[in-house]
Amino acid sequence: MMRLDHGIERGRRIQIILDGERVDVFEGETLAAAMIEQSSAFRRDSNGMARGMFCNMGTCGECTVTLLPGGQRVRACLVPAQVGMDVTRD
């Protein structure tokens, strides 16, 4: 994965919690973008196979995550990262 940096200013560095770990991300980038920087694999399917994001436009649901503590299920490709977010992929 590669965040391009040439001539680009991103938002400020913030931390979110992803599966219990503190992760540095840029404010405003999508949760999916932040997750993909960690690994292209997001979950295991019912056959135990690794799976990642597919469509990146809110259609496929492959990047669905849970926001804590409220438990909302959201598509990570549609939701901007904000300070204090606690995200779990389970």
Partner: peptide, 20 residues
Amino acid sequence: PGVYSAGGMQALLKAQRIVP
């Protein structure tokens, strides 16, 4: 993981400035 729709890949580049 790592297989995307081409449009999704392009949107990562356009909007997130990420090359996957």
